[in-house]
C-alpha cells in the first residue's frame, strides 16, 4: 500500500511537471500532445522539453533517494549522504574539466567517467577491507581531493565566461534536459537501483552489526561492491545530466523512515519513489520562481529546502 501511495504521488508530480511552466498546458491536453495531437506549441513543449525534463527529475531524484537510503543502511548512520563516497565530487570534477576546455558536448561523458574513476579508486583503496569506516574515510578523502581539483580548475579558468559556466553548472539544473540525456540517465539509474535493491536484505541483516551479519551468511564484500557500483551509477548519472544536487539523499530517507518505518530493505525503493517525487516538485518550483526573470537553480533550491528541514529533524532526533 505504501508503494501505491508513493507511485500515485510520483504520477501526480509528473503530470504537474508536464503541465506547469512559463506556458501552462491544461492537464487534459497533455496526453494528446504526447502523441502529437493538439496545438503545435503544446506538442513541441511536451515532447521536446517537459517530457525529458520530467523523466530526468524522476530518475535523478530516485537515484539520489535510493543511494542515500542504501548508504544510511550500510553505515548504520542516518547522517550518511551519497556525497560521502565521493562520486558526486569526482563526477563534478569530470564535468568541470570538460567545461574548462570548452568541450560542452563532453560534459555528460566526462562526468560519468569521473564517477566511474571515483568508484574504481574507492574500491582499490578500501574494497578489500571489511570495515565500513574505511570505505567512508576513503570516500571522504576522494571527495576532498576531487573538490580541491575542481576548485583548482575554477582558479585557472581561462576566462570569466568559462568560470560562470562552471559555477552555474555546479548549481544544478534540469533546464538543458533532452531525450538522449533522459535515456542515458534512465538506463544507468535503473541499473544502479537494481544493484541497490539487491543489497536490501543484507542491509537489513547488517542492522545487527557486521559480526552478527557475517555469522548469518552476509558477504560484506558483495554488499560493498553492489553498493559502490549502485551509488556510482545513480549519483554519477544524476550529476552528469543535472549537475550537483544535494541533500535529497540525506533527508528523503529520513522522511520515509519516519512515515513508513526503518526497515533498510524497504527504505531503498521507498526512498527512490520519495526522491523522484520531491525532485520533480522542486524542479516545478524552480520553473515557477524563474518565471519572475532570474533563473533559480535546482541544486540551490534543494539545499534551501533540505538544509532547514534537516536541522529540524536533527533537533527533533536529539530531543527524543
Amino acid at each position: 500500500m505504501k508503494y501505491a501511495w508513493l507511485f500515485i504521488l510520483c504520477g501526480v508530480c509528473a503530470i504537474l511537471s508536464l503541465s506547469v511552466g512559463a506556458l501552462s498546458i491544461p492537464v487534459l491536453d497533455i496526453v494528446p500532445a504526447l502523441f502529437g495531437h493538439g496545438e503545435d506549441i503544446h506538442v513541441s513543449i511536451i515532447q521536446d522539453l517537459r517530457t525529458p525534463r520530467t523523466f530526468l527529475a524522476l530518475f535523478v531524484g530516485a537515484g539520489l533517494g535510493a543511494s542515500g537510503a542504501a548508504l544510511q543502511g550500510y553505515t548504520r548512520n542516518p547522517l550518511a549522504d551519497p556525497g560521502i563516497l565521493g562520486f558526486s565530487a569526482t563526477a563534478a570534477l569530470g564535468a568541470v574539466g570538460a567545461l574548462y576546455f570548452g568541450a560542452y558536448a563532453w560534459v555528460t561523458p566526462a562526468a560519468l567517467t569521473g564517477a566511474g574513476l571515483g568508484a574504481a579508486l574507492l574500491l582499490a583503496l578500501a574494497g578489500h577491507k571489511q570495515s565500513a569506516t574505511l570505505l567512508i574515510l576513503a570516500g571522504v578523502g576522494i571527495a576532498a581531493l576531487a573538490t580541491s581539483l575542481t576548485g583548482l580548475l575554477m582558479n585557472f579558468a581561462p576566462n570569466p565566461w568559462a568560470l560562470s559556466e562552471i559555477v552555474y553548472w555546479l548549481m544544478g539544473s534540469l533546464r538543458n534536459a533532452n531525450a538522449n540525456a533522459a535515456m542515458i540517465c534512465g538506463a544507468l539509474t535503473c541499473l544502479g537501483l537494481i544493484c541497490l535493491i539487491l543489497t536490501g536484505n543484507d542491509l537489513r541483516t547488517l542492522s545487527l552489526g557486521e559480526d552478527t551479519a557475517q555469522s548469518l551468511g552476509v558477504s560484506l564484500g558483495k554488499v560493498r561492491l553492489l553498493l559502490v557500483v549502485g551509488v556510482a551509477l545513480c549519483v554519477g548519472s544524476g550529476v552528469a545530466v543535472a549537475g550537483a544536487i544535494g541533500f535529497i539523499g540525506l533527508f528523503i530517507p529520513h522522511i520515509i523512515r519516519g512515515i513508513f518505518g526503518a526497515d533498510p530493505a524497504k527504505l531503498i525503493p521507498l526512498s527512490a519513489l520519495g526522491g523522484a517525487a520531491f525532485l520533480t516538485l522542486a524542479d516545478i518550483l524552480t520553473r515557477l520562481l524563474s518565471a519572475q526573470g532570474t533563473l533559480v537553480y535546482l541544486g540551490i533550491l534543494t539545499a534551501l529546502i533540505g538544509a532547514p528541514f534537516f536541522i529540524w529533524l536533527a533537533m527533533k532526533e536529539g530531543q527524543s
Binding site: R76, G209, S215, A262
Partner: peptide, 18 residues
C-alpha cells in the same frame, strides 16, 4: 556455515528500530 552455527555477539546494538 551460517546454517550450522548461530552466533550471539557481545554487541547487541540495533541500528534501526525494527
Amino acid at each position: 556455515r551460517a546454517k550450522h552455527i548461530a552466533y550471539l555477539a557481545q554487541n547487541r546494538h540495533m541500528a534501526w528500530s525494527l
